[in-house]
Amino acid sequence: MECSTSNDSPITCSLGSYSLEGQRVCLKCPPGYACKYRHQSPASCPPGQTTFGKEGMTECSPCPAGFACESPQILPKKCPIGTYSLEGSTLCSLCPPGSACPHTSSIPVPCIVGSYSTSGQQNCTMCRPGYACSNTTKAEDVQCLPGSYSVGGQSHCTVCPAGYYCPDTKLDIKIACLPGHYAYTGFATCRACPAGWQCPQKDGSQNTQCPKGTFSTGLQKACTLCPAGKACPTTNTNNTIPCQPGSYSVGQQAECTVCPPGYECPSITESIVKPCSMGFYSSGGAVTCTQCQPGYACPSRFEALQIACLPGTFANAGFTVSLKRR
Results as ranks from 00 to 15, higher is better:
293 Q>L: 10
196 G>I: 10
99 S>Q: 13
58 T>D: 12
192 A>F: 05
20 L>N: 01
17 S>V: 04
40 Q>S: 09
45 C>Y: 05
208 T>A: 12
208 T>F: 00
319 F>R: 11
249 S>I: 04
159 V>M: 08
4 S>D: 10
307 I>F: 01
290 T>W: 00
132 A>N: 08
65 A>E: 12
123 N>E: 04
276 C>Q: 03
209 Q>C: 02
123 N>W: 09
222 A>D: 04
316 N>L: 03
34 A>T: 08
111 C>L: 12
224 T>Y: 05
241 I>N: 03
320 T>Y: 15
19 S>N: 07
53 G>L: 06
75 L>F: 04
111 C>V: 14
134 S>V: 06
76 P>V: 10
38 R>F: 10
134 S>T: 07
275 P>C: 08
226 C>K: 02
213 G>K: 05
174 K>P: 03
8 D>P: 03
121 Q>W: 02
204 G>R: 03
118 T>S: 07
182 Y>D: 00
92 C>N: 07
263 Y>A: 12
258 V>E: 09
139 A>Q: 15
244 Q>L: 14
95 C>H: 06
275 P>H: 11
156 H>F: 14
177 C>A: 11
223 C>H: 11
24 R>Q: 13
288 T>W: 06
282 S>Y: 14
4 S>V: 15
150 S>Q: 03
225 L>D: 15
81 I>L: 08
255 E>C: 09
189 T>Y: 11
53 G>A: 10
309 C>P: 06
297 A>T: 02
292 C>D: 01
37 Y>S: 06
224 T>A: 12
4 S>L: 14
218 G>D: 05
317 A>K: 10
271 S>L: 04
44 S>Y: 01
88 G>A: 09
86 L>S: 07
263 Y>M: 11
55 E>R: 02
93 S>G: 01
66 G>C: 02
288 T>Q: 11
159 V>A: 07
6 S>K: 12
12 T>M: 01
92 C>Y: 06
112 I>P: 01
36 K>W: 02
185 T>Y: 06
63 C>T: 11
119 S>G: 14
264 E>A: 15
152 G>N: 09
7 N>A: 13
60 C>E: 01
140 E>R: 13
77 K>H: 08
139 A>F: 14
307 I>P: 04
284 G>L: 03
98 G>E: 11
128 R>P: 11
99 S>T: 12
282 S>H: 14
100 A>I: 01
207 N>Y: 03
185 T>I: 13
192 A>D: 15
213 G>A: 03
133 C>R: 02
150 S>P: 06
278 M>V: 13
113 V>P: 05
16 G>R: 01
83 T>Q: 12
234 T>I: 08
273 V>N: 00
165 Y>W: 09
227 P>D: 10
315 A>F: 02
74 I>V: 13
114 G>I: 04
323 L>D: 04
311 P>Y: 09
6 S>V: 11
215 F>G: 15
6 S>A: 14
244 Q>E: 11
14 S>G: 05
211 P>R: 04
280 F>M: 15
38 R>I: 11
286 A>V: 12
275 P>E: 08
